[in-house]
Design a binder for these strands. Structure first.
Lengths: 173, 173
DNA sequence: TCGAGATAGTTCAGGAATGTATTATCTCGA
DNA sequence: TCGAGATAATACATTCCTGAACTATCTCGA
């Protein structure tokens, strides 16, 4: 038991050590966030490695195409917010995407400071194709849980995040 | 409703668009992974911004100290696995940590290829202090959920990740 | 015992992320 | 209408992460 500590089994180990060795008594909070964090990391790493890197795009570039695909043409600022990227990161990633003819960048006619982003035809084709592979793997992952369990998990995560309004949470401006 | 799309409300929007516009019928899988991913991002970003950056350490450096603190002295290889970092990333981050006298690096007497990592006294003091602040904020986050809900969330995430054995999942070697 | 292959760690080049500074544009009150 | 301040985007410097090349060490069979 002791010898086979892994990325995942570190979670209960941390919980036990914090309680027994350091006397923390609300270790369930630690367990919760550590589990959330690591579960997300496991799934995301797999999707990136199995789908997006082989397709020649980073996880972040995928998120940009995904958002533009599902939300339609957007200002860069809004795109940064919806993808969860900083404006600087978005700006850097757009260079290659525009050069590849995947994303079109045009000045907003109503506001000369803004840039309007949209997928080109090639961009739409690419994201539709990529998403097919992505989604296939999503379904394989989600199959771990029954529909009820999936709904419960989403509900609880939603509740957790909704709590941020009470917390003065730091977020990407 | 339409105008106030945000990082978080993008999730149900994506779900709706995929179903209505593109005819996908298992959109709950997408919703599940998107929610998991974004919830983890929100919480982690807050912890890093509120606790670790102000303390002068990156999220990754924190993970190294955290693992060495709770798992005890480890080989570099094992440390990489338990933190979820690549060996290269670990190696690069150890430079500054060793220079600051936070982590001690010594050759393994039994295997000249291996390096044994451990916290120095200063390292132990730092992580104990940092974790106090980290944990305080963890508790504030976890307070969003009842103890039962927390247990359920952990159980479901655990079940999700356990499923990876059936999936030929990509992971950091 | 010796040499091929495996393994541990580091280094390096390149891509990707951040915050800050800078430039261009807009808004609005005097 | 003009100038101060706000806002959008980009450029820049720095940090971090990844895979690949490299060095050092170990293992094991001939």
């Amino acid at each position: 038991m002791d010898g086979e500590l892994t990325f995942w089994s570190f979670v209960p180990r941390a919980r036990a050590r914090l309680a027994e060795e350091f006397g923390y008594d609300d270790v369930s909070a630690t367990e919760l966030l550590l589990t959330l964090n690591r579960a997300s990391g496991v799934v995301t790493y797999d999707l990136e490695a199995a789908v997006h890197r082989p397709a020649g795009r980073s996880w972040s570039s995928f998120r940009i195409l995904y958002v533009l695909w599902l939300a339609g043409p957007l200002e860069a600022k809004k795109t940064a917010e919806l993808t969860g990227l900083s404006r600087a990161a978005l700006s850097n990633l757009l260079g290659p995407l525009a050069a590849d003819g995947i994303v079109d960048r045009e000045r907003d006619p109503d506001d000369g400071r803004s840039v309007r982003l949209s997928l080109s035809d090639a961009g739409r084709r690419e994201i539709a194709e990529t998403f097919r592979a992505h989604h296939e793997r999503e379904i394989a992952w989600a199959a771990a849980l029954s529909p009820d369990e999936q709904a419960t998990l989403v509900r609880l995560l939603d509740k957790l995040v909704a709590h941020r309004d009470d917390l003065d949470v730091r977020h990407r401006s």
